[in-house]
């Protein structure tokens, strides 16, 4: 039963969205199920090798009115590693998006909230992420597009204590179009972060803080025609209370894909993240409050898919994954081979 206060707010909104003549609204849904085998590497969390299953459901509502688009997206993803000594993961995501399209610029605001829950014999951990971000796409000329982002993110992790990460970030990229199919971009990323760790140990309470900057250049290459190539690279210098110069991070994402024989497609994704943090020698702490990036994994995956119908796809995926969960001490890592089925409207 929907509470009456909700009904008062939402029903008129739904009515307005549905009856507006110039507006256009649509629901999208997607269900993706996959299962296979993983072989763990260097991880105390996972067993050596076991079965893995995953279900991914996504529901999106999009509403277009004149020059603006509003969308809401909910995603639920339960994952199960192993059968006996298993690890359960539940990932939830909610997203709201608003975009206004003008003649020479697009302006938008995104709100994303994530809740990740890891529960197993060797791990009990939860993540909460919140990201608010504004985007501006400004078309200076047909060959030059400027993208500017400004945002705030919050991450809280609960394990032995409460870990909180607050950050403000901004990014500016200038995209240059070489041809209608190829463009490159270069820009700068700047982030100010604050970390707080609250530890409760034998009735003793401690609070450790760290703050710093991450900044550096970024480069992007995009090609899209009969195949797709996307490459993003960042080199960020890392300054914090716990690290000394030179501390830096490399992040590379490469995606290559092609459709062949009409129904077949192959995609390769490589995510490579390497932090090189040089710790200050004068700080003696049993716990180092180091920066743990939000939603970042090292991985290489190859996917081969076949379109059974326009909205049904079967695929196999094979690759390596390494997910850092807590100060790089807890890691989900290994190789996996999966078979999946995706149905969408």
């Amino acid at each position: 039963m929907i509470p009456s206060s909700y009904r008062r707010v939402f029903f008129p909104l739904i009515l307005i969205f549905s009856l507006s003549i110039t507006a256009y609204s649509q629901f999208f849904w997607r269900i993706n199920g996959e299962g296979g085998y993983y072989s763990a590497q260097g991880s105390q969390i996972l067993d050596q090798g076991e079965l893995v299953t995953r279900l991914d459901t996504d529901l999106k509502y999009m509403y277009e009115f004149k020059n603006s688009i509003t969308s809401f997206d909910i995603k639920i993803r339960p994952e199960l590693y192993g059968l006996d000594n298993h690890l359960q993961i539940i990932k939830l995501r909610g997203k709201g998006h608003y975009l206004y399209k003008a003649r020479r610029y697009h302006w938008g605001i995104d709100l994303s909230a994530y809740h990740y829950l890891y529960s197993g014999q060797n791990l009990d951990l939860s993540f909460n992420n919140l990201i608010i971000e504004t985007n501006l796409f400004w078309l200076r000329s047909p060959a030059r597009l400027i993208q500017a982002n400004l945002g705030y993110a919050f991450q809280s992790t609960h394990r032995f204590g409460d870990f909180k990460l607050n950050l403000l970030f901004m990014q500016m990229v200038l995209y240059r179009t070489i041809s209608a199919y190829f463009r490159y971009g270069y820009g700068i990323y700047l982030e100010k972060f604050y970390i707080t760790l609250k530890l409760y140990n034998y009735l003793k309470y401690r609070e450790i803080c760290n703050s710093g900057w991450r900044t550096g250049p970024l480069l992007s290459l995009n090609y899209l025609r009969n195949f797709i190539v996307n490459m993003d690279y960042r080199f960020l210098l890392h300054y914090s209370d716990y690290t000394t110069y030179p501390s830096y991070e490399h992040y590379l994402r490469l995606m290559i894909g092609k459709i062949f024989y009409t129904r077949w497609s192959a995609f390769l994704v490589v995510d490579y993240y390497i932090p090189v943090f040089k710790r200050k020698t004068d700080i003696i702490e049993e716990v180092n409050v180091l920066y743990t990036p939000i939603n970042l994994q090292n991985r290489i995956f190859l996917k081969l898919a076949y379109d059974v119908k326009e909205n049904i796809e079967v695929y196999v995926r094979y690759g390596y994954f390494k997910e850092s969960l807590y100060y790089y001490n807890d890691q989900l890592a290994g190789w996996s081979g999966l078979v999946g089925l995706e149905i969408r409207n």
Binding site: D56, K75, R77, R93, Y114, M255, F267, N295
Partner: peptide, 10 residues
């Protein structure tokens, strides 16, 4: 390409 990334990392 977008769906593949979505599959991998939400």
């Amino acid at each position: 390409a977008n769906r593949f990334l979505d599959e991998l990392e939400m």
